[in-house]
Write a protein that binds this DNA or RNA. Structure first.
Length: 510
RNA sequence: GGCCCAUUCGUCUAUCGGUUAGGACGCAAGAUUUUCAUUCUUGAAAGAGCAGUUCGACUCUGCUAUGGGCUGCCA
Protein backbone atom coordinates (compact mmCIF):
# COMPACT_ATOMS: atom_id res chain seq x y z
CA UNK A 1 0.00 0.00 0.00
CA UNK A 2 1.56 3.23 -1.15
CA UNK A 3 0.81 6.11 1.12
CA UNK A 4 0.32 9.50 -0.45
CA UNK A 5 3.22 11.74 0.46
CA UNK A 6 2.14 14.68 2.55
CA UNK A 7 4.66 16.82 4.38
CA UNK A 8 4.31 19.93 6.41
CA UNK A 9 6.41 22.89 7.33
CA UNK A 10 5.25 24.01 10.76
CA UNK A 11 6.94 27.17 11.97
CA UNK A 12 6.06 29.25 14.99
CA UNK A 13 5.28 32.87 14.29
CA UNK A 14 7.74 34.10 16.89
CA UNK A 15 9.79 36.30 14.60
CA UNK A 16 11.54 36.19 11.27
CA UNK A 17 12.16 32.77 9.81
CA UNK A 18 15.89 32.16 9.71
CA UNK A 19 17.72 30.34 6.96
CA UNK A 20 17.80 27.06 8.88
CA UNK A 21 14.02 27.15 8.85
CA UNK A 22 13.99 28.02 5.17
CA UNK A 23 16.20 25.03 4.49
CA UNK A 24 13.83 22.77 6.42
CA UNK A 25 10.95 24.11 4.36
CA UNK A 26 12.96 23.61 1.17
CA UNK A 27 13.83 19.98 1.92
CA UNK A 28 10.20 19.27 2.75
CA UNK A 29 9.15 20.90 -0.47
CA UNK A 30 11.69 19.07 -2.62
CA UNK A 31 10.73 15.76 -1.07
CA UNK A 32 7.02 16.36 -1.60
CA UNK A 33 7.39 17.52 -5.20
CA UNK A 34 9.62 14.64 -6.13
CA UNK A 35 7.12 12.13 -4.81
CA UNK A 36 4.12 13.90 -6.26
CA UNK A 37 2.97 14.78 -2.77
CA UNK A 38 1.55 17.78 -0.95
CA UNK A 39 3.37 20.52 0.90
CA UNK A 40 1.44 21.98 3.80
CA UNK A 41 2.12 25.12 5.78
CA UNK A 42 0.83 24.91 9.30
CA UNK A 43 1.28 27.76 11.74
CA UNK A 44 2.08 26.53 15.23
CA UNK A 45 1.04 29.45 17.38
CA UNK A 46 0.23 27.62 20.58
CA UNK A 47 2.43 29.87 22.68
CA UNK A 48 0.39 33.01 22.96
CA UNK A 49 3.15 34.76 24.87
CA UNK A 50 5.69 34.51 22.08
CA UNK A 51 3.51 35.56 19.20
CA UNK A 52 5.07 38.27 17.06
CA UNK A 53 3.00 40.52 14.86
CA UNK A 54 3.81 40.14 11.19
CA UNK A 55 5.78 36.93 11.56
CA UNK A 56 3.21 34.79 9.82
CA UNK A 57 3.06 37.07 6.79
CA UNK A 58 6.83 37.15 6.79
CA UNK A 59 7.02 33.37 6.64
CA UNK A 60 4.65 33.18 3.71
CA UNK A 61 6.35 35.96 1.83
CA UNK A 62 9.70 34.28 2.38
CA UNK A 63 8.53 30.97 0.99
CA UNK A 64 7.01 32.74 -1.96
CA UNK A 65 10.23 34.59 -2.70
CA UNK A 66 12.11 31.30 -2.56
CA UNK A 67 9.76 29.71 -5.06
CA UNK A 68 8.37 27.25 -2.54
CA UNK A 69 4.73 26.79 -3.36
CA UNK A 70 2.24 25.84 -0.69
CA UNK A 71 -0.51 23.35 -1.49
CA UNK A 72 -2.46 23.71 1.73
CA UNK A 73 -2.09 26.42 4.31
CA UNK A 74 -3.62 29.32 6.16
CA UNK A 75 -3.87 31.40 3.02
CA UNK A 76 -4.53 28.61 0.54
CA UNK A 77 -7.02 26.69 2.62
CA UNK A 78 -7.48 22.97 2.08
CA UNK A 79 -9.38 19.91 3.22
CA UNK A 80 -7.98 20.08 6.75
CA UNK A 81 -8.51 23.78 7.43
CA UNK A 82 -7.92 25.67 9.58
CA UNK A 83 -4.15 25.46 9.37
CA UNK A 84 -3.44 27.81 12.23
CA UNK A 85 -3.32 25.95 15.53
CA UNK A 86 -4.81 28.79 17.52
CA UNK A 87 -7.91 28.33 15.39
CA UNK A 88 -8.02 24.62 16.14
CA UNK A 89 -8.11 25.09 19.90
CA UNK A 90 -11.23 23.10 20.53
CA UNK A 91 -9.80 20.03 18.83
CA UNK A 92 -7.00 19.40 21.26
CA UNK A 93 -8.71 19.21 24.65
CA UNK A 94 -10.72 16.22 23.49
CA UNK A 95 -7.54 14.34 22.65
CA UNK A 96 -5.84 15.33 25.88
CA UNK A 97 -8.81 14.07 27.87
CA UNK A 98 -8.82 10.87 25.87
CA UNK A 99 -5.30 10.26 27.09
CA UNK A 100 -6.27 10.96 30.69
CA UNK A 101 -9.13 8.50 30.41
CA UNK A 102 -6.96 5.80 28.91
CA UNK A 103 -4.43 6.27 31.68
CA UNK A 104 -1.69 7.69 29.45
CA UNK A 105 -1.88 11.14 30.98
CA UNK A 106 -2.94 12.87 34.17
CA UNK A 107 -3.85 16.23 35.66
CA UNK A 108 -1.21 18.22 37.51
CA UNK A 109 -1.98 21.26 39.62
CA UNK A 110 1.51 22.51 40.39
CA UNK A 111 1.98 26.15 39.60
CA UNK A 112 4.96 27.26 37.55
CA UNK A 113 6.24 29.04 40.65
CA UNK A 114 6.13 25.89 42.72
CA UNK A 115 7.99 23.97 40.08
CA UNK A 116 10.63 26.63 39.70
CA UNK A 117 11.14 26.64 43.45
CA UNK A 118 11.45 22.88 43.44
CA UNK A 119 13.95 23.00 40.61
CA UNK A 120 16.01 25.66 42.34
CA UNK A 121 15.98 23.76 45.60
CA UNK A 122 17.27 20.57 44.05
CA UNK A 123 19.80 22.41 41.95
CA UNK A 124 21.21 23.95 45.11
CA UNK A 125 21.81 20.45 46.34
CA UNK A 126 23.49 19.56 43.08
CA UNK A 127 20.62 17.43 41.87
CA UNK A 128 18.42 17.84 38.85
CA UNK A 129 14.68 17.89 38.98
CA UNK A 130 12.85 15.60 36.62
CA UNK A 131 9.09 15.52 36.53
CA UNK A 132 8.59 11.80 36.05
CA UNK A 133 7.62 8.53 37.73
CA UNK A 134 9.78 9.35 40.72
CA UNK A 135 7.80 12.42 41.77
CA UNK A 136 4.43 12.43 40.07
CA UNK A 137 2.71 10.55 42.84
CA UNK A 138 4.04 12.89 45.50
CA UNK A 139 2.96 16.05 43.74
CA UNK A 140 -0.46 17.56 43.28
CA UNK A 141 -1.58 15.31 40.46
CA UNK A 142 -4.65 13.27 39.68
CA UNK A 143 -2.50 10.23 40.36
CA UNK A 144 -2.37 11.08 44.05
CA UNK A 145 -5.47 13.20 44.51
CA UNK A 146 -8.89 11.59 44.61
CA UNK A 147 -11.25 12.05 41.71
CA UNK A 148 -13.43 14.28 43.86
CA UNK A 149 -10.53 16.44 44.86
CA UNK A 150 -9.48 16.84 41.23
CA UNK A 151 -12.98 17.90 40.27
CA UNK A 152 -13.13 20.24 43.22
CA UNK A 153 -9.88 21.93 42.32
CA UNK A 154 -10.93 22.29 38.71
CA UNK A 155 -14.31 23.63 39.77
CA UNK A 156 -12.85 26.28 42.01
CA UNK A 157 -10.70 27.52 39.18
CA UNK A 158 -7.26 26.16 40.02
CA UNK A 159 -5.01 26.17 36.99
CA UNK A 160 -4.07 22.72 35.78
CA UNK A 161 -2.14 21.02 33.05
CA UNK A 162 -2.32 17.58 31.55
CA UNK A 163 0.96 15.71 31.57
CA UNK A 164 1.97 12.64 29.66
CA UNK A 165 2.64 9.67 31.90
CA UNK A 166 6.03 8.62 30.63
CA UNK A 167 6.55 4.89 31.24
CA UNK A 168 9.34 3.86 33.55
CA UNK A 169 12.29 2.02 32.13
CA UNK A 170 11.10 1.21 28.67
CA UNK A 171 13.37 1.28 25.66
CA UNK A 172 11.73 3.05 22.75
CA UNK A 173 13.07 1.89 19.41
CA UNK A 174 12.83 4.46 16.69
CA UNK A 175 13.81 4.85 13.07
CA UNK A 176 15.02 8.00 11.45
CA UNK A 177 15.40 8.32 7.70
CA UNK A 178 18.69 10.15 8.13
CA UNK A 179 20.13 8.73 11.33
CA UNK A 180 18.91 5.19 11.15
CA UNK A 181 17.95 3.29 14.25
CA UNK A 182 17.85 5.22 17.51
CA UNK A 183 16.96 3.92 20.97
CA UNK A 184 16.14 5.78 24.13
CA UNK A 185 15.18 4.72 27.62
CA UNK A 186 12.05 6.42 28.89
CA UNK A 187 13.45 6.69 32.40
CA UNK A 188 15.61 9.59 31.28
CA UNK A 189 12.59 11.44 29.95
CA UNK A 190 10.08 13.56 31.82
CA UNK A 191 6.32 13.86 31.89
CA UNK A 192 5.82 16.57 29.31
CA UNK A 193 2.95 18.98 29.57
CA UNK A 194 0.46 18.32 26.79
CA UNK A 195 -2.24 20.80 27.57
CA UNK A 196 -2.56 23.85 29.77
CA UNK A 197 -5.76 25.24 31.19
CA UNK A 198 -4.33 28.73 31.56
CA UNK A 199 -4.79 29.52 27.86
CA UNK A 200 -6.79 26.44 26.89
CA UNK A 201 -4.08 25.57 24.40
CA UNK A 202 -2.03 22.43 23.84
CA UNK A 203 1.76 22.46 23.86
CA UNK A 204 3.76 21.66 20.77
CA UNK A 205 3.89 17.93 21.38
CA UNK A 206 0.18 17.30 21.57
CA UNK A 207 -0.82 19.75 18.86
CA UNK A 208 1.87 18.44 16.60
CA UNK A 209 0.92 14.78 16.86
CA UNK A 210 -2.81 15.42 16.67
CA UNK A 211 -2.50 17.68 13.65
CA UNK A 212 -0.02 15.48 11.82
CA UNK A 213 -2.43 12.62 12.29
CA UNK A 214 -5.52 14.57 11.30
CA UNK A 215 -3.77 16.10 8.31
CA UNK A 216 -2.53 12.70 7.20
CA UNK A 217 1.11 13.68 7.24
CA UNK A 218 3.28 10.89 5.86
CA UNK A 219 6.76 12.26 6.56
CA UNK A 220 7.97 14.59 9.24
CA UNK A 221 11.13 16.36 8.14
CA UNK A 222 12.33 18.75 10.83
CA UNK A 223 15.38 20.05 12.64
CA UNK A 224 17.61 17.92 14.80
CA UNK A 225 16.57 19.83 17.89
CA UNK A 226 13.46 17.62 17.86
CA UNK A 227 15.28 14.34 18.05
CA UNK A 228 15.19 14.23 21.88
CA UNK A 229 11.41 14.43 21.84
CA UNK A 230 10.98 11.72 19.24
CA UNK A 231 10.35 9.00 21.88
CA UNK A 232 7.56 11.10 23.35
CA UNK A 233 6.06 11.45 19.92
CA UNK A 234 6.33 7.73 19.26
CA UNK A 235 4.65 7.04 22.59
CA UNK A 236 1.89 9.50 21.83
CA UNK A 237 1.12 7.79 18.55
CA UNK A 238 0.96 4.53 20.45
CA UNK A 239 -1.23 5.94 23.22
CA UNK A 240 -3.68 7.21 20.65
CA UNK A 241 -3.63 3.94 18.80
CA UNK A 242 -2.28 5.59 15.67
CA UNK A 243 0.88 3.59 15.22
CA UNK A 244 -0.28 2.20 11.88
CA UNK A 245 -0.39 5.62 10.33
CA UNK A 246 2.51 7.16 12.20
CA UNK A 247 4.57 9.25 9.80
CA UNK A 248 8.19 8.53 9.06
CA UNK A 249 10.71 10.88 10.59
CA UNK A 250 13.81 12.59 9.28
CA UNK A 251 15.83 14.89 11.52
CA UNK A 252 17.97 17.41 9.69
CA UNK A 253 21.35 18.49 10.99
CA UNK A 254 21.54 22.05 12.23
CA UNK A 255 23.16 25.05 10.61
CA UNK A 256 26.13 26.32 12.58
CA UNK A 257 27.66 29.77 12.90
CA UNK A 258 30.34 30.64 10.28
CA UNK A 259 32.84 31.17 13.07
CA UNK A 260 32.88 30.40 16.73
CA UNK A 261 30.57 28.00 18.42
CA UNK A 262 26.93 27.12 18.44
CA UNK A 263 24.09 26.91 16.04
CA UNK A 264 23.25 29.78 13.78
CA UNK A 265 21.05 32.14 15.69
CA UNK A 266 18.92 35.07 14.82
CA UNK A 267 21.36 37.54 16.25
CA UNK A 268 24.37 36.41 14.22
CA UNK A 269 23.50 38.37 11.12
CA UNK A 270 24.55 41.87 11.90
CA UNK A 271 27.37 40.72 14.10
CA UNK A 272 29.02 38.67 11.36
CA UNK A 273 28.08 40.85 8.43
CA UNK A 274 25.73 38.62 6.49
CA UNK A 275 22.00 38.02 6.58
CA UNK A 276 20.48 35.11 8.48
CA UNK A 277 17.03 35.87 7.15
CA UNK A 278 15.65 35.50 3.65
CA UNK A 279 13.92 38.88 3.77
CA UNK A 280 14.43 42.05 5.68
CA UNK A 281 12.41 41.98 8.87
CA UNK A 282 11.25 44.84 11.00
CA UNK A 283 10.27 43.58 14.43
CA UNK A 284 7.44 45.26 16.33
CA UNK A 285 10.17 46.64 18.56
CA UNK A 286 11.54 48.48 15.57
CA UNK A 287 14.62 46.32 15.36
CA UNK A 288 15.62 45.73 11.76
CA UNK A 289 17.26 42.58 10.43
CA UNK A 290 18.70 42.45 6.96
CA UNK A 291 17.64 39.88 4.42
CA UNK A 292 19.10 38.06 1.44
CA UNK A 293 16.60 39.61 -0.90
CA UNK A 294 17.46 43.15 0.12
CA UNK A 295 21.17 42.34 0.04
CA UNK A 296 20.85 41.59 -3.66
CA UNK A 297 20.73 37.81 -3.71
CA UNK A 298 18.74 36.09 -6.40
CA UNK A 299 16.23 33.66 -4.93
CA UNK A 300 17.56 30.90 -7.18
CA UNK A 301 21.09 31.41 -5.88
CA UNK A 302 19.90 31.54 -2.30
CA UNK A 303 17.94 28.30 -2.69
CA UNK A 304 20.78 26.61 -4.53
CA UNK A 305 23.22 27.55 -1.78
CA UNK A 306 20.87 26.41 0.95
CA UNK A 307 20.10 23.11 -0.74
CA UNK A 308 23.78 22.22 -0.89
CA UNK A 309 24.26 23.04 2.77
CA UNK A 310 23.80 19.63 4.29
CA UNK A 311 22.80 17.76 1.16
CA UNK A 312 24.73 16.82 -1.94
CA UNK A 313 23.78 14.97 -5.08
CA UNK A 314 26.77 12.63 -5.04
CA UNK A 315 27.91 14.08 -8.34
CA UNK A 316 30.05 17.10 -8.99
CA UNK A 317 27.18 19.26 -10.11
CA UNK A 318 26.74 22.33 -7.93
CA UNK A 319 24.42 24.57 -9.86
CA UNK A 320 20.82 23.44 -9.65
CA UNK A 321 17.57 25.16 -10.43
CA UNK A 322 14.47 24.21 -8.48
CA UNK A 323 13.36 21.55 -10.96
CA UNK A 324 16.77 19.96 -10.92
CA UNK A 325 16.78 19.99 -7.14
CA UNK A 326 13.40 18.29 -7.06
CA UNK A 327 14.73 15.67 -9.41
CA UNK A 328 18.00 15.05 -7.60
CA UNK A 329 17.02 15.42 -3.96
CA UNK A 330 16.99 12.50 -1.57
CA UNK A 331 16.88 12.29 2.21
CA UNK A 332 19.45 9.50 2.11
CA UNK A 333 22.02 11.97 0.87
CA UNK A 334 21.42 14.49 3.62
CA UNK A 335 24.45 14.65 5.90
CA UNK A 336 24.38 13.74 9.56
CA UNK A 337 26.51 16.49 11.01
CA UNK A 338 25.89 20.17 11.41
CA UNK A 339 26.89 22.40 8.54
CA UNK A 340 28.68 25.67 9.03
CA UNK A 341 27.24 28.40 6.93
CA UNK A 342 29.74 30.13 4.63
CA UNK A 343 29.19 33.70 3.42
CA UNK A 344 31.96 33.26 0.82
CA UNK A 345 30.20 30.37 -0.80
CA UNK A 346 26.95 32.32 -0.76
CA UNK A 347 28.68 35.12 -2.70
CA UNK A 348 30.04 32.65 -5.20
CA UNK A 349 26.63 31.17 -5.83
CA UNK A 350 25.15 34.58 -6.41
CA UNK A 351 27.94 35.50 -8.81
CA UNK A 352 27.26 32.35 -10.82
CA UNK A 353 23.63 33.30 -11.19
CA UNK A 354 24.54 36.90 -11.94
CA UNK A 355 26.83 35.88 -14.81
CA UNK A 356 24.11 33.85 -16.48
CA UNK A 357 21.23 36.15 -15.64
CA UNK A 358 18.92 37.32 -18.38
CA UNK A 359 19.96 40.78 -19.62
CA UNK A 360 16.37 41.97 -19.84
CA UNK A 361 15.83 41.39 -16.15
CA UNK A 362 19.12 42.99 -15.20
CA UNK A 363 18.40 45.95 -17.46
CA UNK A 364 15.23 46.61 -15.48
CA UNK A 365 17.24 46.72 -12.28
CA UNK A 366 19.94 48.83 -13.86
CA UNK A 367 17.53 51.32 -15.38
CA UNK A 368 15.90 51.76 -11.98
CA UNK A 369 19.28 52.37 -10.37
CA UNK A 370 20.12 55.01 -12.98
CA UNK A 371 16.74 56.57 -12.54
CA UNK A 372 17.46 57.11 -8.88
CA UNK A 373 20.49 59.11 -9.92
CA UNK A 374 18.48 61.12 -12.37
CA UNK A 375 19.94 59.39 -15.39
CA UNK A 376 17.83 58.17 -18.26
CA UNK A 377 19.11 56.05 -21.12
CA UNK A 378 17.53 53.91 -23.78
CA UNK A 379 16.74 50.37 -22.82
CA UNK A 380 18.79 49.08 -25.72
CA UNK A 381 21.85 50.81 -24.30
CA UNK A 382 21.19 49.47 -20.81
CA UNK A 383 21.02 45.99 -22.26
CA UNK A 384 24.45 46.38 -23.79
CA UNK A 385 25.99 47.79 -20.63
CA UNK A 386 24.48 45.15 -18.41
CA UNK A 387 25.76 42.38 -20.67
CA UNK A 388 29.26 43.66 -19.93
CA UNK A 389 29.09 44.46 -16.25
CA UNK A 390 27.21 41.38 -15.09
CA UNK A 391 30.33 39.33 -15.71
CA UNK A 392 32.14 41.51 -13.20
CA UNK A 393 29.45 41.71 -10.53
CA UNK A 394 28.18 39.58 -7.69
CA UNK A 395 25.31 41.85 -6.69
CA UNK A 396 23.21 44.37 -8.63
CA UNK A 397 24.40 47.03 -6.18
CA UNK A 398 27.77 46.92 -7.90
CA UNK A 399 26.36 47.98 -11.26
CA UNK A 400 26.82 51.69 -10.74
CA UNK A 401 30.37 51.36 -9.55
CA UNK A 402 31.14 49.24 -12.59
CA UNK A 403 29.68 51.68 -15.07
CA UNK A 404 29.70 55.15 -13.54
CA UNK A 405 32.55 56.22 -15.84
CA UNK A 406 30.14 56.00 -18.74
CA UNK A 407 28.19 58.90 -17.28
CA UNK A 408 30.98 60.93 -15.77
CA UNK A 409 33.88 62.01 -17.97
CA UNK A 410 37.26 61.82 -16.24
CA UNK A 411 38.21 64.98 -14.36
CA UNK A 412 41.66 63.68 -13.56
CA UNK A 413 43.92 60.92 -14.79
CA UNK A 414 45.04 58.20 -12.45
CA UNK A 415 48.67 58.82 -11.64
CA UNK A 416 49.86 55.27 -11.65
CA UNK A 417 47.98 54.41 -14.81
CA UNK A 418 49.37 57.49 -16.53
CA UNK A 419 52.89 56.56 -15.60
CA UNK A 420 52.35 53.04 -16.82
CA UNK A 421 50.40 53.60 -20.03
CA UNK A 422 51.13 57.14 -21.24
CA UNK A 423 54.39 56.23 -22.88
CA UNK A 424 56.47 58.02 -25.49
CA UNK A 425 54.36 57.13 -28.52
CA UNK A 426 51.02 57.51 -26.80
CA UNK A 427 50.26 61.17 -27.70
CA UNK A 428 51.00 60.57 -31.36
CA UNK A 429 49.06 57.31 -31.54
CA UNK A 430 46.07 58.82 -29.77
CA UNK A 431 46.18 61.70 -32.17
CA UNK A 432 46.05 59.28 -35.09
CA UNK A 433 43.29 57.33 -33.38
CA UNK A 434 41.27 60.51 -33.13
CA UNK A 435 41.44 60.96 -36.86
CA UNK A 436 40.45 57.36 -37.43
CA UNK A 437 37.48 57.67 -35.08
CA UNK A 438 36.33 60.89 -36.70
CA UNK A 439 36.09 59.01 -39.96
CA UNK A 440 33.77 56.32 -38.58
CA UNK A 441 30.16 56.96 -39.45
CA UNK A 442 28.50 54.06 -37.72
CA UNK A 443 29.78 54.08 -34.20
CA UNK A 444 29.09 50.45 -33.29
CA UNK A 445 31.21 47.83 -31.59
CA UNK A 446 31.53 45.91 -34.85
CA UNK A 447 32.47 48.92 -36.94
CA UNK A 448 34.94 50.22 -34.38
CA UNK A 449 36.57 46.85 -34.16
CA UNK A 450 36.79 46.53 -37.93
CA UNK A 451 38.21 49.97 -38.63
CA UNK A 452 40.47 50.31 -35.60
CA UNK A 453 41.61 46.74 -35.90
CA UNK A 454 42.67 47.31 -39.48
CA UNK A 455 44.51 50.50 -38.53
CA UNK A 456 46.33 48.78 -35.65
CA UNK A 457 47.31 45.86 -37.84
CA UNK A 458 48.43 47.98 -40.76
CA UNK A 459 50.66 50.13 -38.58
CA UNK A 460 51.80 47.21 -36.41
CA UNK A 461 50.98 49.11 -33.26
CA UNK A 462 51.29 47.00 -30.10
CA UNK A 463 47.79 46.19 -28.89
CA UNK A 464 48.61 46.93 -25.28
CA UNK A 465 49.96 50.34 -26.12
CA UNK A 466 46.95 51.63 -27.99
CA UNK A 467 44.30 50.07 -25.81
CA UNK A 468 45.73 51.11 -22.50
CA UNK A 469 46.40 54.65 -23.59
CA UNK A 470 42.97 54.83 -25.12
CA UNK A 471 41.40 53.56 -21.90
CA UNK A 472 43.30 56.17 -19.92
CA UNK A 473 41.91 58.89 -22.16
CA UNK A 474 38.34 57.69 -22.00
CA UNK A 475 38.03 56.47 -18.41
CA UNK A 476 40.94 58.13 -16.66
CA UNK A 477 41.58 54.94 -14.73
CA UNK A 478 42.36 51.30 -15.50
CA UNK A 479 38.70 50.36 -15.30
CA UNK A 480 35.79 49.42 -17.51
CA UNK A 481 35.20 46.79 -20.13
CA UNK A 482 36.18 46.35 -23.76
CA UNK A 483 37.23 49.60 -25.47
CA UNK A 484 35.07 49.06 -28.56
CA UNK A 485 32.06 48.25 -26.43
CA UNK A 486 32.64 51.24 -24.18
CA UNK A 487 33.09 53.71 -27.01
CA UNK A 488 30.06 52.36 -28.83
CA UNK A 489 28.01 52.97 -25.71
CA UNK A 490 29.47 56.44 -25.22
CA UNK A 491 28.83 57.42 -28.80
CA UNK A 492 31.01 59.28 -31.25
CA UNK A 493 30.66 62.76 -29.80
CA UNK A 494 31.40 61.83 -26.21
CA UNK A 495 34.27 59.59 -27.23
CA UNK A 496 35.91 62.35 -29.21
CA UNK A 497 35.26 64.93 -26.53
CA UNK A 498 37.00 62.78 -23.95
CA UNK A 499 39.84 62.00 -26.31
CA UNK A 500 40.38 65.71 -27.02
CA UNK A 501 40.26 66.56 -23.34
CA UNK A 502 42.86 63.91 -22.60
CA UNK A 503 45.12 65.04 -25.41
CA UNK A 504 45.10 68.58 -24.15
CA UNK A 505 45.54 67.63 -20.48
CA UNK A 506 48.05 64.80 -20.61
CA UNK A 507 51.66 65.67 -21.58
CA UNK A 508 52.08 65.83 -25.34
CA UNK A 509 55.75 64.98 -25.26
CA UNK A 510 57.56 62.62 -22.96
C1' G B 1 25.28 17.11 35.61
C1' G B 2 21.94 13.57 32.67
C1' C B 3 20.25 11.82 27.82
C1' C B 4 20.79 11.86 22.55
C1' C B 5 23.33 13.03 17.90
C1' A B 6 27.69 13.90 15.30
C1' U B 7 33.33 13.97 13.94
C1' U B 8 37.36 13.52 6.12
C1' C B 9 41.47 19.77 3.72
C1' G B 10 40.11 26.53 7.12
C1' U B 11 34.67 25.79 5.13
C1' C B 12 30.75 22.66 2.27
C1' U B 13 31.44 17.72 0.92
C1' A B 14 32.59 12.57 -2.22
C1' U B 15 34.13 7.69 -0.56
C1' C B 16 28.86 2.96 1.30
C1' G B 17 36.51 -2.74 3.61
C1' G B 18 41.24 -2.53 -1.00
C1' U B 19 41.49 4.98 -4.17
C1' U B 20 47.96 8.52 -5.63
C1' A B 21 41.41 10.01 -0.29
C1' G B 22 38.02 13.23 -5.42
C1' G B 23 35.29 17.97 -6.17
C1' A B 24 33.70 23.05 -4.71
C1' C B 25 34.46 27.82 -1.88
C1' G B 26 38.41 30.57 -0.02
C1' C B 27 43.86 31.17 -0.36
C1' A B 28 48.68 31.23 -3.31
C1' A B 29 51.28 31.06 -7.99
C1' G B 30 51.14 31.12 -13.20
C1' A B 31 48.83 31.56 -18.21
C1' U B 32 45.45 34.14 -21.47
C1' U B 33 43.38 39.13 -22.10
C1' U B 34 43.24 45.65 -23.81
C1' U B 35 42.27 47.76 -17.85
C1' C B 36 39.28 45.31 -14.33
C1' A B 37 36.87 40.94 -14.27
C1' U B 38 35.92 36.31 -16.50
C1' U B 39 38.29 31.84 -18.00
C1' C B 40 42.15 28.19 -17.68
C1' U B 41 46.40 25.61 -15.32
C1' U B 42 49.02 24.47 -11.03
C1' G B 43 49.90 24.44 -5.75
C1' A B 44 49.34 24.26 -0.37
C1' A B 45 45.47 21.90 2.50
C1' A B 46 41.99 16.35 5.60
C1' G B 47 40.30 10.88 7.75
C1' A B 48 40.30 13.78 16.28
C1' G B 49 43.07 10.10 19.52
C1' C B 50 43.70 5.07 21.32
C1' A B 51 42.45 0.09 21.18
C1' G B 52 39.95 -3.94 18.63
C1' U B 53 37.63 -6.88 14.32
C1' U B 54 39.94 -8.06 9.45
C1' C B 55 44.69 -10.49 4.88
C1' G B 56 43.44 -5.27 4.64
C1' A B 57 39.92 0.13 7.74
C1' C B 58 38.44 6.90 6.51
C1' U B 59 34.70 3.16 6.08
C1' C B 60 32.74 -1.91 11.25
C1' U B 61 33.00 -2.12 17.13
C1' G B 62 34.48 0.00 21.87
C1' C B 63 36.62 3.80 24.84
C1' U B 64 38.41 8.83 25.15
C1' A B 65 38.35 13.72 23.31
C1' U B 66 35.91 17.52 20.83
C1' G B 67 31.54 19.79 18.73
C1' G B 68 26.24 20.09 18.67
C1' G B 69 21.22 19.41 20.46
C1' C B 70 17.74 18.55 24.34
C1' U B 71 16.97 18.71 29.54
C1' G B 72 10.31 24.87 30.02
C1' C B 73 2.88 25.19 31.42
C1' C B 74 8.99 27.52 24.05
C1' A B 75 8.68 25.71 19.58
Amino acid sequence: MERKVRVRFAPSPTGALHIGGVRTALYNYLFARQRGGDFILRIEDTDSTRYVEGAEEYIMESLEWCGIKIDEGVREGGPHAPYRQSERKEIYLKYALQLVESGHAYYAFDTPEELNALRAELEAKGETFCYNYSVREQLATSLRLSAEEVEERKARGDQWVIRFKMPENEVVKMDDLIRGHVEMNTSTLDDKVLYKSADALPTYHLANIVDDHLMEISHVIRGEEWLPSLPLHYLLYRAFGWEESRPEFAHLPLLLKPTGQGKLSKRDGDKLGFPVFPLKFVAPSGEVSRGYREDGYFPEAFINMLALLGWNPGTEQEIFNMDELIEAFSLERVGKSGARFSPDKAHWFNAQYMHTRDNEELADIYLAQLNERGITIEREKALRIVAQIKMRATFPEEFWGLSSFLFEAPTAYDEKATKKYWKADAPRIMGELKTILEGIEEFTTEELEKVCGAWIAANEIPMGLVMNAWRLCIVGEPKGFGMYDMCAVLGKDETLTRLNAALSTLPSTL
